[in-house]
């Protein structure tokens, strides 16, 4: 298992969040999540401008194996979605923390329930056992 990027926040649902300089937050799924799902074949993205609630369904990623909901880790407005995933969902497999980002959001205030890379690594270690 590759090392987790230290500059990201993580959720127990295997999403990652990166706080951008302009106050927005970029969100994707972790390497662990993409590996567990297998090759992705379809991603259903939210609309730009849509308001989402922390914990609500935000996107769906479908792999060769199964469909899986992606929950909004924070509340806020969708500023941008990664349109390239429509034609190339495998970007999430190839580069989950980079080209495979899913949405960028403007947080509406309170942060959701996130953890740092050490806490997330500990969670993964527990799952391995």
């Amino acid at each position: 298992m590759s090392e987790l990027p230290g500059d990201l926040e993580y959720t127990a649902e295997h999403e990652w969040l990166r706080k951008e300089d302009d106050g927005s937050v970029t969100i994707g799924i972790t390497d662990h999540a993409q590996s567990a799902l297998g090759d992705l074949v379809y991603v259903e993205l939210p609309e730009v401008g849509q308001e989402v609630e922390a914990g609500g369904e935000m996107a769906v990623v479908e792999s060769v194996k199964a469909a899986s909901d992606v929950y909004a880790p924070i509340s806020g407005e969708i500023l941008a979605v990664n349109e390239e995933l429509a034609d190339d969902p495998e970007k999430i497999n190839a580069d989950p923390y980079g080209d495979g980002w899913i949405v960028r959001m403007q947080p509406s205030g309170d942060d959701g329930d996130t953890m740092d890379s050490f806490a997330y690594q500990a969670l993964l270690d527990e799952l391995e056992e």
């Binding site: 297998g38 090759d39 074949v41 060769v64």
Partner: peptide
């Protein structure tokens, strides 16, 4: 074996 890296 389910796959050896990429099923696709």
């Amino acid at each position: 074996p389910l796959h050896y890296g990429s099923q696709l």
